[in-house]
Design a protein around this nucleic acid. Structure first.
Lengths: 151, 151
DNA sequence: AATTTACATTTGTATATACAACTATAAATT
DNA sequence: AATTTATAGTTGTATATACAAATGTAAATT
């Protein structure tokens, strides 16, 4: 459905404004859909993101800054996200022996299992939307988004 | 910058996943940028959205449902958003005389003035990003996003 | 007319987010 | 060695969001 219909806009809309609204609305659709997937596992999207980053470390511990810079939302409070994951025993946290300002965060076996259970659902989620586009259009969409936000 | 560089991803990424991350990240960039514009006026993006919907009513009052269905984030709590705007005297709210379940929300003169002051900045914001694309690409991006999220 | 159902909005509560201020430690400078 | 500056992470606080439950009222049904 076109964005004007979704927002029941009565006046014609500039294409530049349409992109903004399309991006924001598409993000909402994706996120709501993804939250449904995460709900049974009682983790938020941001927490999932942290777990995925930690798995990507392949056994190497990550400090808070490493996690932060790999997150989508750069404003998120990594300390508190890790706190929540600790409570659920999905990660461990300890002070780095060489530099006591640094923290070493690692994903636990339980955390890896949650991710493993989620993996097929996440892939299905990703393909659920992109199935509407052929592979050329998928490439194009990625390129246009990357070009669009260049500042 | 490509999304893999931004998120410092070490492994190659599926194009379907890349779209998701590109949309989410682009939304973050747009929103952060827009929040900077709104900051001096002390209204949030959602509050701005409500004001714009009310101005679009062209003098006709809107009830809560009308506002809700025109919002980008369908989960937002319109009652409380209107509460905040009331406190700032940017809108008025009264009970509809015919149907007392309905509420009539109207933008005030002060609300219209805030929007008028914001208008040029909002247009500049919209064009700030889309300047990176030519008009054909802008069309294409809108069409791809609309096609992408079709369920 | 009384009851039920549907609708419109508000409230409660838990959690998340934004952003500034703070603490602790390491490294650099004097 | 003492002081300053930079870095790494945490905490406080206000606001926002998500979602369920509650309230109040109109319309429909019995």
């Amino acid at each position: 459905m076109k964005i004007e219909e979704i927002l029941k806009s009565t006046v014609p809309m500039d294409n530049s404004k349409k992109i903004i609204l399309n991006v924001l609305y598409t993000q909402n659709v994706i996120t709501e859909n993804f939250n449904e997937i995460l709900k049974p596992y009682e983790i938020s999207g941001e927490q999932y993101n942290v777990l995925r980053i930690l798995r990507g470390q392949k056994g190497n511990p990550a400090n808070m800054w490493t996690i932060q810079e790999r997150m989508l939302a750069k404003t998120s409070n990594t300390t508190r996200l890790v706190d929540k994951l600790l409570l659920k025993e999905l990660v461990t946290r300890k002070v780095c022996p060489e530099n006591r300002r640094k923290i070493e965060v690692l994903i636990t076996q339980k955390g890896l299992e949650v991710l493993a259970a989620l993996d097929p659902k996440v892939i299905a989620h990703e393909q659920f939307f992109s199935k509407n586009l052929n592979s050329q259009e998928i490439d194009q969409l990625n390129q246009l988004l990357e070009k669009y936000r260049n500042q």
